[in-house]
Design a protein around this nucleic acid. Sequence first.
DNA 1: CTGGATCCTGAATGATACTG
DNA 2: CAGTATCATTCAGGATCCAG
Lengths: 123, 123
Amino acid sequence: MTDTTPSRNDELSVPAPHRELLDQVLDKWSLSVLGELCEGPRRFNELRRAIPAVTQKSLTATLRRLERNGIIEREVVSSRPVAVEYRVAPLGKTMRPPVDVLLDWARTYMPQIEKAREAFDAR
Amino acid sequence: MTDTTPSRNDELSVPAPHRELLDQVLDKWSLSVLGELCEGPRRFNELRRAIPAVTQKSLTATLRRLERNGIIEREVVSSRPVAVEYRVAPLGKTMRPPVDVLLDWARTYMPQIEKAREAFDAR
DNA sequence: CTGGATCCTGAATGATACTG
DNA sequence: CAGTATCATTCAGGATCCAG
C-alpha cells in the first residue's frame, strides 16, 4: 500500500518513498544524531550528552537503524575498554543538501506558522 | 523543548526547528494529504478514498493540525448536506520545493538504501 | 457527508538493572 | 564504555457509535 500500516490491506505494497523516508531516516531522533555526527565522529556517550533528551534505548535503536540503512557507519575503535565510533557514511552525506533545504524552509517560515497557530487558537 | 519529550527536562526549551517540523508538518499522514491536495481541492471523503489506509480519526487530526499551522485551508462549501473543502494554503505552497528536493533524494538513493539493508541483514 | 466522543489495544518510549 | 534485558507506562491509532 501507500504507507506503513501493517494492516491486512498491504498486498503488493510498493513502499511510498516518503513513507520509507520518514520511517527510516527522518524519525524522531535521526536528524539530531545526523546533525551531531556531521560535526565529526562521535562515540556513544558523546551522542547521549549532546542530545540529552534521548534515552540510551532510543539512541541505540536510532543508531542501528541509521547504520542498517547505510546512513552512518559504526566502528569499534578499541576494546578494553570498548570504544565505538559513529560517523556519517557516504550515503548519509548525500542527505545534507535536501535536509538543509528543509531546515532552511523551517527556519524561514516558522514565524508564519506561529502566527497561524495563534490565529487558529484564538478561536 | 528541544524535542517532543514532554518529560521534566524541557525547561527553557527553544524548539528545535526540525523537531517542530517533523511533529507538525512531516508526520505520518501529512505528506500524503499534502500530495493529494496539491492536485486540487478535496473534500473529506475524497481524501479518505485517496488515502485508504488512513482512518477517519487520523485524517481529521491531520487536517486539523495542518490547518492550525496554516498549511492548508478549510472551507465549508455548503450545508444541507454539509460539504467541506480542503485546499493548500499559500504557506503550504511554499513547502513544495523543499519537499520535492527531499522526495527526489529518496527516489534517487532508495536503491542504495536497499542495498545497505541487505548487506546489513546478511550478517 | 463531515466529523466528534469513546473505548481499547499494540507499539513506542521511559526507567532501571545488569553485562562484556 | 557501550550496550542488552526487563518491566512499567504512555500514547497514537483502530474500531464503533453517534450527531449536526
